[in-house]
C-alpha cells in the first residue's frame, strides 16, 4: 500500500464522480424511458456510441465543440424520436419483452452500420483546447475536462429537475408514469408524451457519448460495457427512479474508481457485487417501487 496517500484517494474519488457522471447521463434516460413507457431500452448504449460518433464527425468537419454540445443531443434525440415512432410504438401493449428484443436487435444494427461507415477501429478524440490542463482542487491537480463533465451533468440534472417539477409537461410526465390512463382521460395525447420522453432519454445518452469521447476515445463497441454498467446503476437506484439513478450512478462511479486503485483486477466485478448486495438487502433498489415489474 506504499504510495497511497490521502491526496491520491481524494483524486480517485473525484475521478469516480466524473466517471459516475457519465453513468448518470445514461441511467436517467434509461430510467425515464422505463418509468414512463415500461420499455427496457437495450439500444441505449448504441445511442451513447452514436453521440460519440456524431460528435467525432461534426468535429472533423470543423464544427466547434460548444456547438456539438447542443447539436449532438439534438441529432441523437431526433434519431430516437424516429425509432420510437416507427419501431417501438407498434409494440406497446404487448408486454415488456417485445420492445426489449427489438431494441436489443436494433443496437446490433446500429453498431454494424457505424462499423461500415466509420471503420472497425477506434479513433482518439482530442480534449477541446479550452478544457485542457488541470486545476488544483485542494487534494491535488485534477483534469479540467473531467470537472467540466461533472458540471455539464449537474446542469442537465438541474434542468431536468426544473422541467419535471415546474412545468406542465413535467407534471404530465410525473403523473403519466404512474397512471397513463388518467392522463389520457384528462386530455393528454399520451403517445406524444411517450415519443418525447424516448427522444429526450436518447438525446441525453448521446450527450453522454460526446462527453465521454475525449476521455476514452471512440470505437463502435463502446456502448456495450457502459450499457451494462448503466443497467447496474438503474437496478441499484431503483428502476424508474431519477433520484435513484443519480445517486447510484455516482456511487457506482466511485466504486469502480476506488477498486481500480486498490484492486484493479476487481474493478469490473465490483459493481456487479455491489448490485448483488443491494438486491439482496433491498430488491427494489434505493428508490424503486416494489413490484414494479409484476
Amino acid at each position: 500500500m506504499a504510495g497511497l496517500s490521502l491526496e491520491l484517494i481524494g483524486l480517485q474519488l473525484f475521478a469516480g464522480l466524473a466517471l459516475g457522471s457519465v453513468y448518470v447521463l445514461l441511467a436517467i434516460g434509461l430510467s425515464l424511458i422505463f418509468g414512463m413507457l415500461t420499455v427496457v431500452n437495450f439500444a441505449h448504449g448504441a445511442f451513447f456510441m452514436l453521440g460519440a460518433y456524431v460528435g467525432l464527425w461534426l468535429l472533423s468537419i470543423g464544427v466547434n465543440f460548444w456547438i456539438c454540445l447542443v447539436a449532438v443531443p439534438l441529432i441523437v434525440g431526433g434519431f430516437g424520436l424516429a425509432v420510437e415512432r416507427t419501431l417501438i410504438r407498434p409494440l406497446y401493449g404487448r408486454g415488456i419483452d417485445y420492445p426489449l428484443l427489438l431494441t436489443f436487435g436494433l443496437s446490433y444494427i446500429i453498431v454494424e452500420l457505424v462499423r461500415i461507415v466509420f471503420g472497425k477501429s477506434g479513433y482518439p478524440v482530442a480534449t477541446p483546447d479550452a478544457l485542457q490542463g488541470a486545476v488544483d482542487i485542494g487534494v491535488g491537480y485534477f483534469p479540467l475536462y473531467r470537472l467540466f463533465v461533472m458540471g455539464v451533468t449537474a446542469l442537465i440534472l438541474v434542468g431536468l429537475w426544473l422541467f419535471l417539477e415546474r412545468t406542465r409537461y413535467g407534471l404530465i410526465i410525473r403523473a403519466g408514469a404512474r397512471d397513463a390512463q388518467i392522463v389520457r382521460v384528462l386530455g393528454v395525447n399520451i403517445s406524444r408524451v411517450w415519443l418525447m420522453v424516448f427522444g429526450l432519454g436518447c438525446g441525453i445518452a448521446g450527450l453522454g457519448g460526446l462527453l465521454a469521447a475525449p476521455l476514452q476515445g471512440v470505437i463502435p463497441e463502446m456502448g456495450g460495457p457502459i450499457l451494462a454498467e448503466a443497467f447496474v446503476v438503474t437496478v441499484v437506484g431503483g428502476m424508474g427512479s431519477l433520484m435513484g439513478a443519480v445517486l447510484a450512478g455516482l456511487l457506482v462511479g466511485v466504486v469502480v474508481s476506488m477498486t481500480s486503485l486498490f484492486a484493479p483486477e476487481m474493478a469490473k466485478v465490483a459493481i456487479f457485487a455491489l448490485m448483488a448486495v443491494v438486491l439482496l438487502i433491498r430488491p427494489q433498489g434505493f428508490f424503486g417501487r416494489a413490484g414494479l415489474m409484476s
Partner: peptide, 15 residues
C-alpha cells in the same frame, strides 16, 4: 395520483 400534491392533481385536470 397519490405521489402528487392535491394542488398538482387539480392542475393535472387542466393540463
Amino acid at each position: 395520483v397519490t405521489g402528487l400534491t392535491v394542488r398538482e392533481n387539480l392542475r393535472l385536470g387542466l393540463v
